[in-house]
Write a protein that binds this DNA or RNA. Structure first.
Length: 795
DNA sequence: TTAGGGTTAG
């Protein structure tokens, strides 16, 4: 009988060729349950009343354990005697092991309904299934049941309960189960250490590990791996070293997984030499260890070593880089801004059939974006078949980082419309899109997002983005209020606040904020010095700027990056020493980027040095192809010098390259509404009134007849085509003057840099009207007050 | 018949 049953089931579906296993697995995942009998008396012919023979039971076990024959196991089960608890346990375990978690819970429910006796072996995998499904209520029902049947003190069952409660995000319940266990083994302790780590609380995880050691337990590889993961997460180098000693003492230092965790811990704590040392001591290395070492180099900014490590890995005959190897090395492409390396990794992934893989694809999108290859990022993003929230957020961030704010908003809106695909913006989406709203001076939208952000509770990432957004919208007070109310200020919060003061020309306050940060015990990073040096540059604090730049290496052991060098060129330009600025660029240890030459170009413009400006423009042109601002700035300098042939040459060059001059626009907030103007704008409903106010202001400030004698009449005629008389900023200032509260400052935003004429006029208006006028352009804010500007006439 | 693990994107 048993042989017949087995033969019939084997013939039906269970014995399939080995190379067809993936298909079998698919079939298993979509398994259909056979119709079961509701009442066995209706099916008197079924053999279920007879005890199950050992051979059939063994067959059931073999099918359920095989990993690809659950359908056959289920069919066999239906033919068997259901009163036997063992066969139910086998099926529940088999379903859970095959990832069929809800089916496992269904089977347990059926067992309950049919009144089958449950034992110690019934519960563990049902509990595991509840955890995997994040079904807290069902998990608690099972918990209640096992208390009822008196199995709640079983050490296996309790260990599964601890894990389940962590999986569903209830650390307190997990802890309660652990505390109430009559006996605990190493697995119980390890579950607590691993559970807190998976909950994202590395410190609690380490606390439990210490308690475990204190209770006299000898840690095994599982506990050590979790504890080292906690050290990596929280950058606890000291604890990591202590665990390393423990590992050597317990003789598990040669274990490849323990070794990987050690390499990872040292790498993430910035101790790359120790990571290398552990790596070399591991006798049998696998891909994961290599990947951890690559990551260690990346974390320490050692891009060249990370590329070399990947190459060495390829040269090792037994080692084949996988998707994680590439994911780990990609940030190095961003660090060095190497598009070629990025493309080469993309090509390798394609050739080695590592694509599609959403994490790798998303990492590539991010790397392309950071190498300013927005089109490549876009193309790749469009073909990711399984885009997830991180993929969308990454593409939005690529647009934002590359100042493609309209595109960022468009993608964000598309993402919001795709909510029916279960894609809901998270805190990072909100924080990523805020800079675009702020850059486009969409103040009301920023405020709406601020209101929306409340649903995320107190969220540091969002608060940091809000501080930046409000500062960018000219509302420094609200930015400071958000900063002061933040419960969890981090380094980024401080850096953002320093930058906020810097962009508004409050350099001294920026320095004071940096000192406050140090007093709270927070160590500065590269970003802190970008904020600080930028602030010194905007406020013309030349001496302090140099002091902090030199202190970076000597006091804080931080190598200045390309951005800090850029700030120093701004500072040198402000001191008027263009030769020194050029020498500084030539002696930099990093290759100058377009941003560096852009700073030199601004310095040349401010010092009216056309030859230097031409040098900068040619360098920029050789480094990138679409820098519109650079051409416009140079063209304006030629125009001011009356070199109209050169103006036309630049114009033709821009046309040839398909570059359109940015349409200058300006906005001012009036009664919660943004009023926008363009050049010579007469479309505003109050256009006549604005024009009259402007006339009065021009007369009052003596700017109504402005004859620059260095121009010949023909130059003046040509110059009038772009003359400052119709500049949008003047219209916005005039509307602001008459439409905002008397005596109160008001903010004007423009998307291009303010010209010299409008800057001079704004200073005079601020004195004539005794009003503070704030004008923000792409780089910083000009606070005009009493006839002077916070920028010190250098921008 | 019962458990846990390392390297991966914003």
């Amino acid at each position: 009988m048993a042989a017949t049953v087995l033969t019939s089931y084997c013939c039906s579906s269970s014995l399939k060729p080995i190379d067809d296993s993936s298909k079998q697995l698919e079939e298993t995942k979509s398994v259909k349950f056979p119709e079961r009998a509701r009442n066995s008396r209706r099916h008197p012919s079924r053999p279920s009343i007879k005890p199950n023979s050992p051979a059939v039971t063994r067959s059931l076990l073999a099918l359920a354990d095989s990993g690809c024959a659950m359908d056959s196991a289920l069919q066999l089960f239906e033919k068997m005697n259901h009163s036997d608890t063992f066969i139910w346990n086998v099926i529940i375990r088999g379903l859970a092991r095959n990832g069929l978690f809800s089916e496992a819970v269904d089977f347990y429910r059926r067992m309950e309904r049919e009144g089958i006796r449950m034992d110690y072996f019934t519960f563990p995998f049902v509990i595991k299934a509840c955890g995997e499904l994040m079904w807290l209520t069902e998990g608690q029902r099972v918990h209640a049941r096992l208390i009822k049947v008196g199995l709640d003190s079983d050490i296996y069952v309790c260990n599964f309960l601890v894990e389940m409660y962590f999986s569903v995000g209830c650390a307190e319940l997990a802890e309660k189960v652990f505390e109430e266990m009559p006996q605990r083994d190493l697995v119980s302790w390890n579950s607590m250490v691993a559970g807190y780590l998976s909950a994202g609380d590395g410190f609690s995880s380490l606390g439990w590990f210490r308690e475990m050691i204190g209770s006299g337990k000898k840690p095994d590889r599982f506990g050590v791996i979790s504890a080292l993961g906690a050290c990596s997460k929280e950058s606890c180098l000291k604890s990591g070293k202590e665990i390393h000693c423990l590992v050597i003492k317990n003789g598990i230092d040669l274990d490849v997984m323990v070794g990987t965790s050690l390499v990872d811990m040292y790498g993430k704590c910035g101790e790359v030499r120790s990571a290398e040392m552990v790596f070399h001591l591991i006798p049998l290395k696998n891909v994961a260890v290599w990947n951890s070492l690559i990551n260690a180099y990346v974390v320490s900014g050692k891009s060249a070593e990370s590329f070399a490590c990947l190459r060495l890995m390829q040269e090792d005959q037994h080692m084949v880089p996988d998707a994680i190897s590439l994911i780990n090395v990609l940030p190095s492409c961003s660090q060095v801004g190497s598009l070629k390396e990025c493309q080469s990794i993309h090509g390798y992934a394609f050739r080695k059939l590592l694509l599609p893989q959403v994490v790798l694809e998303t990492s590539l999108v991010d790397a392309y974006g950071k190498c300013a290859a927005v089109r490549s990022a876009e193309r790749l993003f469009s073909v990711i078949s399984e885009k997830n929230l991180i993929s969308w957020n990454t593409m939005i961030a690529v647009y934002v980082q590359n100042e493609k704010h309209e595109e960022a908003l468009e993608l964000f809106q598309e993402m919001c419309l795709k909510q029916y695909h279960h894609l809901k913006p998270d805190a990072i989406t909100i924080a990523s899109i805020l800079p675009s709203y702020a850059e486009l001076a969409m103040v009301n939208e920023c405020k709406q997002i601020h209101a929306l952000a409340a649903k995320f509770g107190s969220n540091t990432v969002i608060s940091n983005a809000l501080i930046h957004a409000y500062a960018k919208c000219g509302d420094l007070d609200t930015a400071r209020r958000i900063f002061d109310r933040m419960p969890g200020k981090n380094l980024v919060s401080w850096n953002t606040m320093i930058l906020a003061y810097g962009m508004h020309g409050f350099g001294e306050t920026a320095i004071a904020t940096f000192s406050q940060m140090r007093e709270t015990g927070i160590e500065p990073d590269q970003g802190s010095f970008v904020s600080l040096l930028y602030s010194c540059s905007i406020s013309g604090l030349i001496e302090q700027g140099w002091e902090y730049f030199n202190a970076m290496k000597s006091e804080y052991n931080i190598d200045p990056g390309i951005e800090q060098y850029g700030c120093m060129i701004d500072l040198l330009g402000r001191s008027g020493n263009l030769d020194a600025a050029r020498e500084f660029i030539e002696q930099m240890p990093l290759p100058p980027t377009a941003r560096i030459w852009g700073s030199f170009l601004s310095a040349s413009r401010n010092n009216n040095d056309l030859a230097s400006a031409e040098l900068a423009a040619s360098k920029i042109s050789s480094l990138e192809h679409d820098n519109t601002g650079c051409y416009v700035l140079l063209s304006n300098m030629y125009a001011e010098a009356g070199r109209w042939e050169d103006v036309n040459r630049i114009k033709s060059l821009m046309k040839e390259k398909g570059l359109a001059k940015t349409t200058a626009s300006c906005s001012v907030q009036i009664g919660g509404k943004s009023e926008r103007f363009v050049y010579h704008d007469v479309s505003h409903r109050e256009a006549n009134m604005i024009s009259e106010v402007l006339d009065v202001m021009l007369k009052q400030t003596g700017e109504d007849v402005k004859m620059n004698m260095k121009f010949r009449p023909v130059d003046l005629i040509k110059r009038r085509r772009g003359s400052p008389e119709g500049h949008a900023v003047r219209l916005a200032i005039c509307l602001g003057l008459v439409s905002t509260a008397v005596g109160k400052p008001f903010v004007v935003r423009q998307n291009t840099r303010i010209c010299k004429d409008c800057h001079r006029l704004a200073k005079k208006i601020s004195r004539a009207c005794n009003r503070e006028i704030v004008v923000g352009d792409g780089k910083a804010f000009h606070h005009f007050n009493g006839g002077v500007c916070s920028c010190g006439d250098y921008w």
